[in-house]
Nucleic acid binder design. Structure first.
Lengths: 155, 155
DNA sequence: GATCTTTACTTCGATCGCCGAGATATCAGG
DNA sequence: CCTGATATCTCGGCGATCGAAGTAAAGATC
């Protein structure tokens, strides 16, 4: 199983450089591009939700949304259900950019995955889905992670 | 195939938050922890190599290595083959920390992957390896990426 | 329905990290 | 040697991020 973790670590490192290059090309930061593509698939979202997803504080997301809104990629709409909160949505221009960003990524992933048979591909999708959920929930449980880090030290 | 790209995008976003949480716990930045774990598996490496891998400039890596060296996690040794360059290596302390960081990640990945059969797991490893190579080489070819982004726009 | 607590986002001040450009040292080739 | 290329570091400046405080609205309690 450790095999997977090693490979995945390499994918993450490579992704860092990849996303950095792409973000620079479109004149945005890496978190901003992440937000754009996420909105494309998930629909309108609240700032705090985006903050958790990207792993930064709400204050930082405010600044990132300011930049995205200034560039005309997103709009902030008030949420009729809860007027404390805000819903961030893509503009047509933002949707176009997000679509291009994802299409680029999609093609590179397809090239990287190569010619796997459909059954394996489906299984791979299922595994990745589990994995993202696991990492996502772990990222929020600071105490548990701290404990596990300690435990590794004593092992 | 697009299925995989969507799932992988989610994994990357979740990883951002995950790595941020872990890095904060050990008092380092995300790039620093990436460097530590990479050195653990790859052995001594040169600063410029690390820079490409993490997707930052050599100047930034200098600062990151300064911090890691000050904390006692790595040492800079002169390279006998080429005295212009430097070889960065883990100290015992750094190796211990990197080992813990990877062990934590490894366990979370194993949990996320779940009980896939060995054949699928092996195939997954192979695919991830291809993928990391593909993303890695793409990240360096700015011109090609720019062209592909344009092309997506005209589609 | 008045008050208190919680939640959501933003603003502000300050710090930190990153980048680009220039400096230094070394290598490789003619 | 001398020149051009390579590897790293230093420095100055900019931009992003954070923590904390501020504003506003929703929900809970009595």
């Amino acid at each position: 199983m450790s095999e997977i973790a090693v490979r995945l670590k390499d994918v993450l490192a490579a992704s860092d450089a990849y996303r950095q290059t792409v973000a620079r090309l479109v004149g945005l930061g890496v978190p901003e591009t992440t937000i754009l593509v996420h909105l494309l698939h998930a629909g309108p979202r609240r700032p705090s939700t985006l903050a958790r997803r990207v792993g930064v504080t709400p204050a930082s997301v405010t600044a990132q949304l300011d930049r995205l809104e200034l560039a005309g990629h997103v709009v902030r709409r008030s949420n009729p259900r809860d007027r404390r909160s805000v819903l961030v949505d893509l503009t047509d221009q933002g949707r176009d950019l997000a679509g291009r960003l994802f299409a680029l990524f999609d093609r590179d992933v397809a090239t990287g995955v190569g010619d796997a048979d459909p059954a394996t591909t489906a299984e791979l999708g299922r595994i990745l889905e589990h994995l993202s959920r696991r990492l996502d929930e772990r990222a929020r449980d600071t105490h548990a992670i701290a404990a596990d880090l300690e435990e590794s030290g004593r092992r």
